[in-house]
Design a protein around this nucleic acid. Structure first.
Lengths: 223, 223
DNA sequence: ATATAAAGTTAGAATCTTCTAACAAAATTA
DNA sequence: TAATTTTGTTAGAAGATTCTAACTTTATAT
């Protein structure tokens, strides 16, 4: 259906729309590491193909069709990541590049089998939701760690960026999904946050790091 | 290193060399479903890149470098097929097309992991040998079924072609790898062979089918 | 051995994806 | 608001892979 290349553009538009609210040519160019004029002409092509709405000098939006096709690629990517971690024993910081390639495999049976073997997971190893076969996905209401207040006790649920370096950083700090984190103090001038988790008291996390960490507020169990 | 496309050409040359002894432009064109002039120019490119020896009007041969790179692609293909059958529950007639796509994934770790999880297999689900990490592979001396003599008792070890249709045909006849087959009679004018296996007496197999079936002679156990 | 068929080659063009250079619009800052 | 920076666009070209049409060489058959 779509080429490898078109799929990468769709995915990038989808991800940018989800994280920044909109996708413009400049951001796409940076994310895909492709020069702006190239992105520009691809926007025209995708627009002709009915996958995006594109008017000059305006941000790009996915059509319903584009939205659905993008979601299917994301689905294949996240299912693959989950499979690599759960069934093959890779670390959460090792799977992105491999999934980036396998996501383009054309074989509904292959991904259906993964889904089945994994028991129809709802999230990938980074806590991101896996769209269902219809392209629907639910971001349970998570908050960024840098939006919490001192005294909050929260659970680490997902990351919004999954670069190798960032995930390796979290590994070294023993910050895994489901870790219970208590916010101790927030430095007002630079947003550095002091947290406590596991046996670590007084761990410092920069605002940049906390901006990429999604947490849920701990359920206060009513007795 | 090599593009997707180049890998497909290399693999086809490798396979043709193995089955027909040599690879010429016309055969490559048919196998790859790409017109002859296109194949022709790719031969020049691969020759420039030092992967094949190519002189006008002569069959193409892989250089040592080309041989090794082709073997690595075959290795990835066959490891993938084995993984799909052994670890994901696909049938041997379902895995070719998926493996054809996954074989191009660039990630030594991914295939090393498959290899490990499979226990370092020597053959794929069709009985074809899997080249090792150095590109070496051993075809244990098998014979084609249509070269056997009446009275021979042999073991079904591999197929030389693994099209969906052919494998499904074998499935319907209950012809699985390791089946013990006794050659009863060979019709001289068309080479149709009457065989006996499992509970089937008098099963007829055309010469075309028998040409694609590889067998080993049954070990006569000395008491 | 000549004629025909099969296989191989050359030339030229098309499509896809990418680029650089130059220009234009929009946003930001002074 | 005017100047500057950032963002976006147009035009033109290049590399990769593919094609068709026309021609040549090698193999096969009469």
């Amino acid at each position: 259906m779509n080429t490898h290349t078109e799929e990468n553009y769709l995915k990038a538009i989808f991800n940018l729309s989800a994280t920044k609210g909109e996708a413009n040519v400049n951001e796409l160019s940076r994310q895909l590491d492709i020069k702006m004029p190239t992105v520009n002409s691809m926007m025209k092509k995708l627009s002709d193909r009915g996958l995006i709405i594109y008017e000059s000098y305006k941000p790009v939006r996915l059509t319903t069709k584009g939205q659905k096709e993008a979601a299917m690629i994301i689905r294949k990517h996240r299912l693959t990541e989950m499979y690599l971690v759960e069934k093959m024993g890779f670390g959460w910081d090792e799977v992105h590049d491999i999934a980036e390639q396998i996501e383009h495999v054309q074989s509904p049976e292959f991904f259906a089998k993964m889904d089945e073997l994994l028991g129809y997971p709802k999230v990938d190893p980074h806590g991101s939701p896996i769209p269902d076969r219809n392209g629907k996905m639910e971001w349970t209401e998570y908050h960024k760690l840098n939006e919490c207040k001192p005294g909050d006790t929260v659970i680490f649920k997902a990351v919004t960026h999954s670069s190798d370096d960032f995930l390796k950083f979290l590994n070294t700090r023993e910050l895994l999904l489901e870790t219970v984190i208590k916010v101790i103090f927030i430095e007002s001038f630079d947003g550095t946050i002091t947290v406590e988790y596991n046996k670590r008291k007084q761990e410092l996390l920069s605002n940049i790091v906390c901006d990429k960490i999604l947490v849920s507020h701990k359920k206060t169990r009513s007795v």
